[in-house]
Nucleic acid binder design. Structure first.
Lengths: 334, 334
DNA sequence: TGGATTTTTTGGAGCGCTCCATAAATACGC
DNA sequence: GCGTATTTATGGAGCGCTCCAAAAAATCCA
């Protein structure tokens, strides 16, 4: 368990391979100007000694940490997994290290994840959460905001899917099925606000009244349950419910069952995010897919571009979502 | 966006505060032997310059990275969130940095998370996943295995809940309700294997035949759906299904509905892990709670103890799970 | 009041690397 | 064959800290 010998350093490798430490460094960084024989010798020495370069030393000496920080909202809400996958598909080949911090968990101990990334000299930041504006002070590294957020640090790139459009797509689908009395469950978040806007626009264009609940609540399953309950009590006539996300939709299902309303025969339900929840065959929820993996890819590219050229004008990429139709939505009862 | 001035260093702070760099370092590390006036001056300078100590430099110089690596299996399966919370509740006050790597995501780009942590000089490792044995080679830092795992690196501490007991508790509950024909959905994982063992023991003690499916599959929702389908086709008489985890139980619900079997009136369903899935009021699944947050607390303590005393004998802590009874289980039909 | 303690402060060495300027080895051209 | 270009290889400086030994300042006690 204890390292019998202290960790080998680049000097140990050099000695073993019979070369200079600089040559080892060259091999480590994959320089082209190393003779094959030396390279083999160094590789062998590395292998034999079980040498691993020290990140701390290389980032200190090279003034490049090759680290990208990702701030997400809550590990418990797995929408970020696809985002991460997308980010890494671009960043891994470039030998960047992606580290993730969760705003919720950090908040418990009063930590500031942005500070943490700054302390580790992260070369770039992906904001996939709604951070406190105070956290963004002195944010001097390339930053890209992923997803729709309330508070955008100046100079940051933005990569998001069009949540207004996504909501409109869901509504379009419900209209096409024949629904006219459609309620919406919202909550306090940047994304929810835009989805609400899309809902309002669609309803108003169709000449229908907006039926919205949950404006003051969160976007959790419990909040969805509460908001749906309120909606159903105030407007018993709704034939469809569009929720700001899948978890809220799950909550709505409970509220509906409690009131003896069958889904989708009596009431259709649509969610947002196309998470595993929506895809589970037991639930099989119609949901708007915001293609987080693509967002991740674009965000990573934007970051790389900005790291390469800090003077680059911030860009704003808005992707199109798509609707995944499943069995939770159907025609309204006659 | 661009740092107008290069990041301030400890020297800049020292100059501004009119003290030596060593004194600044002392303040940074909270030494007791600093006069209040100097401390104030240094703190003010730090604030004014927006100084943040460089992690790379301090871990290089101090040969302490104050970093703990956590290896989890899959960000998509949020059982680890409570574990993380528990870990951090202990590690944060000790000024440790907890960083998480996901085996699935790392595998995509052929990375080895353990290697990564070793490269960043992590002082300790929490294995909350089933890593390849190859990853554990030359694992020379304090390690604690969290949860029931197949492959335990020698010398590691182990902190887990008793999965055999957990399974027995679930079965006890089903027996008490009057069930006799109980099927089990399993999968390939260390935890699943133990839960299977608990199931087998309980059934055999009760003189009942074990009805198990899914032995060759994973532990996902889809795997649960498939295994439950198989179980129901082979043994249409089962009145209860005990799944190796909540996601599998969710899959089972779909298979049951497809076959027109009502839950819980005709068939009771119990899961494991007591995740948000189980707690969602629409699903409201009976589930075994393994108290991951407590596991996290114990794992962190074990790690701290071993970092303090590397010669310490490895310990094996086994906690008791508890059963959360919800509406998915009830008496069997008469 | 002066020496011995104790507390506070300081410069220097060095952590393990990268980067640069330069040296050594090799290749090229006539 | 010898000077010049080109490719490889090297030592030294330094990244921003921590740690240590030792200096300076403050405190104590006879």
């Amino acid at each position: 368990m204890i390292p019998p010998i202290p960790r080998p350093t680049i000097y140990d490798v050099a000695a073993r391979a019979g070369v200079s430490k600089s040559l080892v460094s060259l091999v480590l960084r994959g320089s082209a100007n190393v003779s094959p024989s030396r390279r083999r010798a160094v590789d062998a020495a590395i292998e034999e000694l079980g040498y691993r370069p020290s990140r701390a030393a290389s980032s200190l000496a090279g003034s490049r940490s090759r680290t990208i920080g990702v701030v997400i909202d809550d590990f418990g809400n797995p929408w970020f997994v696809d985002l991460l996958r997308g980010l890494r598909s671009v960043l891994d080949p470039e030998e960047f290290h992606v580290t993730v911090a969760d705003l919720q968990l950090d908040a418990v101990s009063g930590r500031n994840p942005v500070d943490g990334f700054l302390a580790m000299h992260a070369e770039g930041l992906v904001l996939a959460a709604e951070p406190e504006p105070a956290m963004l002070e002195r944010l001097t590294i390339p930053t890209v905001v992923a997803g729709s957020r309330e508070c955008i640090p100046s100079g940051a790139d933005i990569v998001a899917t069009d949540d207004v459009l996504g909501a409109r797509m869901a509504l379009q689908h419900l209209f096409a099925l024949g629904h006219r009395s459609i309620g919406h469950l919202t909550g306090r978040s940047g994304a929810a606000r835009l989805r609400l806007a899309g809902y309002r626009e669609s309803m108003s264009e169709a000449g229908l009244p907006a039926l919205v609940t949950g404006e003051l609540g969160g976007t959790t399953e419990g909040a969805g349950y509460a908001a749906a309950g309120e909606l159903l009590d105030d407007h018993p006539g709704v034939t469809a419910i569009f929720a700001a996300n899948d978890t809220m939709a799950l909550g709505a299902l409970a509220a509906l069952r409690e009131r003896g309303r069958e889904v989708p025969r009596q009431v259709s339900v649509a969610g947002y995010d196309n998470t595993a929840i929506a895809a589970a065959s037991y639930l099989n929820l119609t949901s708007v897919d915001n293609h987080s993996d693509d967002i991740g890819v674009d965000a990573a590219r934007a970051l790389l571009a900005r790291i390469g050229d800090p003077e680059r004008e911030p860009r704003h990429i808005l992707r199109k979502p798509s609707l995944v139709t499943r069995s939770s939505t159907t025609k309204p009862p006659p």
